[in-house]
Amino acid sequence: MSDATNAAKPAALPIKDAGPRGFLVSSPPHLAAGATTQRIMFEVLLAMLPLFGFALYMFRLSAIVLTVATIAGALAAEALGNLMRKRDQSSVYDGSAIVTGAILAFSLPPSLNPYMAFLGGMVGIALGKIVFGGIGNNLFNPAMVGRAFLMICFPAALVSFTPTAPMTAAGVDATTMATPLYAAAKQMDLPSMSALWLGNTGGCLGETSAIAALIGGLYLVIRGVADWRQPLALLLTAGIFAQIAHWIAPDAHPGATFHLTSGAMMFGAFFIATDYVGAPVNPWGRLIFGAGVGLLVMVIRLFGAYPEGFMFAILIMNSLTPVIERVTTPTPFGGKVEA
């Protein structure tokens, strides 16, 4: 029908002319920002690229092998879990298992046997996520659950570090095989500040370069993918704690900059502590969570049996999340609703 005949038609429009199906009825709003879970996970992976690049430079093939192994393990567990619970496989494609796998890989030592890494990924998803009911329902960070499992099963493999070619070239002593934190705990010579920032030191895949973690982390914060609250509270608390310890016993404890740039601190602050599910959703809750992790990491580093305590700190704070959540429910803008 041409426009001319359209205009000549009687003005009133009976319902059937409104379109063959009538119109959709739905409740507003009718617009959405278009963000999806998948997109968020993609951005997290994107932010991990600088770290991955550095790991590739430092550890060569083992960086790839470990990352592939953990991700494969995580995806396999996710798919199996869906099969067993007769759910569709959409959660395999939402990217969350890939992120879990990648984060786990980045917190493993490069010399780890890939089959252990695969197992870690599987167990992390299975015990950390699926038993709780899948994405959004887990209490603990699945990557950290996987790492804890490996820590229990293969304690020796998880703390052995072998320096690689770039490290020896940078002057790391090949015989000590020590990570900076181990060196600090044993009061050995510490790597230089620039080595810590850049990352030519020993350590787990994603732990060595503070700068690469910072770049990726800031990207996440600026894009609004990660909340700024956890990293800020975490780094501030840990920094203050370390500096106070340094003032009290300057010989025994290196200062704040050392602790903030060594080990899993930067990576963990931006990538592990900001994981949505195990952390509180309330703004104040997130600050408390971050501060709690920062405090626990430093307590473990300075007084615990392990040189690094990120995993324990996260798992402990995860278990406290429901409590934190309850006490930090935000007050509405105009005050609590009067009954």
Binding site: G136, G224, A279, V281
Partner: peptide
């Protein structure tokens, strides 16, 4: 609708 990922947005 998919499960809430607790992103806090």
């Amino acid at each position: 609708e998919t499960p809430c990922i607790r992103c806090g947005r």
